[in-house]
């Protein structure tokens, strides 16, 4: 796959698109992230796996600024969202945060499409109203995205007229229309039955083949092995093991990873 070549040709020479260092986050007295670090290079696809409650969603929510870090660093390229000062995260100004927000897209487990907007408007509204891009350009691009997602003919439909798989593909298109540097997916198929799951995984594979930078939380091990350059196993708020997909999934070194993979295979 093309994305793998990018990495093997120039290992570690490229600036990471997103850099998370020593991320800590507690809810009340429960520490959910205990110093998680993750750097994603351009074109790389990272799969995040791990047991329920391990902190996968929390990691993505901190990375997308839906939650604030207690400690650690978060940066998108040269846009530093939060830097660590003596173990506490200090966030940059709202302007800097707004700029960083333009660098990523997030695909939710339950889509979170805007139910009162058509497919077209779901995709075009933020580029037009937030990014102030010309409507004609945005709409032309949206039509291409809709076709690419296999949704031709759905432009004027509203989300409730679509299947779950179609809705999730709209939400992927909505995120892509913002021209993000990195796409986050939080269990994008766990609300879908197998048939619809396949449709969604297909478009994510397509994006991987186009060298889209992606971080995907998933329970689909076959998919992770196929699409990911790197797999991160997150358990109990820490990265227990990470490495190339084949290694972590087929030949895990850590006992906790093995136990998790055995359980999930049942």
């Amino acid at each position: 796959m093309a994305s793998k070549q990018v990495q093997t040709e120039k290992p570690g020479t490229q600036e990471p698109v997103v850099l998370i260092e020593g991320a800590r986050k507690s809810f009340g007295s429960v520490e959910v992230l205990k110093g998680v670090s993750l750097a994603v290079r351009p074109g790389e696809t990272v799969a995040v796996i791990g047991p329920s409650g391990g902190g996968k969603s929390t990691l993505l929510r901190c990375a997308t600024m839906l939650e604030t870090l207690d400690g650690g660093t978060l940066a998108y390229g040269d846009t530093v969202v939060a830097r660590d000062e003596g173990g506490r995260s200090v966030y940059s100004s709202k302007d800097v945060q707004a700029r960083a927000r333009q660098r990523f897209g997030l695909v939710f487990q339950n889509y979170n499409l805007f139910p009162h907007y058509t497919v077209m408007k779901n995709i075009t509204d933020a580029p037009i109203c937030v990014q102030k891009r010309p409507r004609a350009d945005v709409e032309r691009e949206a039509r291409d995205l809709i076709a690419k997602m296999g949704l031709a003919g759905c432009e004027e439909k509203v989300p409730c007229q679509l299947s779950g798989g179609q809705q999730q593909r709209v939400s992927i298109a909505r995120a892509l229309a913002m021209h993000p540097d990195v796409m986050y997916f939080d269990e994008p198929t766990s609300a879908l039955d197998p048939e619809l799951t396949a449709e969604v995984l297909k478009v994510i594979k397509l994006l991987a083949a186009e060298d889209m930078t992606m971080v995907i939380v998933t329970h689909e091990m076959g998919f992770a092995r196929e699409v990911a350059d790197r797999v991160v196993f997150l358990d109990g708020g820490s990265v227990v093991e990470e490495g190339p997909a084949e290694q972590v999934i087929d030949h895990p070194r850590e006992e906790r990873t093995r136990a998790f993979l055995r359980r999930i295979a049942e």
Binding site: L106, N112, A126, C129, V130, R174
Partner: peptide
């Protein structure tokens, strides 16, 4: 209105006013 609507709007960069008037209010009216 589900939290997810606010979160989707936030990630897409909508301002608070835009989120209220474009995303939340029309759904509330219905």
């Amino acid at each position: 209105i589900p939290r997810g609507q606010y979160e989707a709007a936030e990630v897409l960069g909508y301002s608070r006013a835009q989120t209220f008037f474009k995303i939340v209010l029309p759904q509330v009216v219905k």
